[in-house]
């Protein structure tokens, strides 16, 4: 899915956090949005992922505006995956049940868990596994419906460097298989894995590296 954002501006109250952002995300690409805290990268990610409506500007998904996409819940479930900094796995469900909660086709759960190396942890709860394993389960939940694009906000923020690199490698691997990734991060190591790096500063796109 191609995503095009034009002239994005956004305010939180009276504070302007985006000041005219133009971004294009190509299908299947691994895009990193990097910048310091407060640069606006999370706001851009939230707008691109349909979670937030911009104060000004437009976002098109394969040429369609958000209001032309029909039921937004349905659109999210079929086209978009999310990975958050805090894994947000539901604590009273096992890892497998967490993934199943999002799954449109339950037969895909076990193969996906296998490909992420967490097939043995299906019956464990999130507080019974390591941080890296929790994040892999969260990634599995994001990928289970074969979304066109996965949005990740600081997905390695709570991981050590070894596990962080493991997550980037996974993103790289699935990106090669056709799933797009848009990752907001302040970790510069992501540059080694991303196809496109969008550098943000003070609410504008400072530079785009390809």
């Amino acid at each position: 899915m191609k995503i095009e954002a034009r002239g994005l501006e956004h305010f939180y109250g009276h504070e302007k956090v985006l000041n005219g952002v133009d971004i294009e995300i190509l299908p299947g690409s691994f895009t990193a949005i990097i910048g310091e805290s407060g640069s606006g990268k999370t706001t851009v990610l939230s707008i691109l992922s349909t979670l937030l409506q911009p104060s000004l500007g437009s976002v098109r998904y394969d040429g369609k505006l958000l209001n032309e996409l029909g039921n937004i819940d349905h659109f999210r479930q079929h086209n978009i995956g999310f990975v958050f900094q805090f894994h947000y796995l539901i604590s009273y469900l096992t890892l497998r049940e967490n993934i199943a909660l999002a799954a449109l086709d339950a037969t895909l759960i076990d193969p996906l868990m296998g490909s992420l190396g967490i097939e043995r942890l299906g019956k464990r709860y999130s507080d019974e596994v390591s941080g890296g394993e929790r994040q892999r389960a969260a990634i599995a939940r994001a990928l289970i419906n074969h979304p066109s694009v996965v949005f990740a906000d600081e997905p390695t923020g709570n991981l050590d460097s070894k596990n962080a690199l493991g997550v980037y490698e996974l993103f790289r691997e699935f990106s090669r298989a056709g799933t797009g990734f848009v990752v907001a991060s302040h970790d510069k190591k992501i540059a080694d894995y991303a196809d496109v790096i969008i550098e943000m500063e003070d609410g504008i796109v400072k530079q785009i590296h390809k």
Binding site: G35, E36, S37, G38, S39, G40, K41, T42, L45, S46, L51, L52, F82, F84, Q85, F86, Y88, D153, E154, G157, A184, H186
Partner: peptide, 12 residues
């Protein structure tokens, strides 16, 4: 509940 609240808890 706005899913944005999840991002705002930990995002930049």
């Amino acid at each position: 509940i706005d899913p944005m609240s999840l991002i705002q808890r930990g995002g930049a």
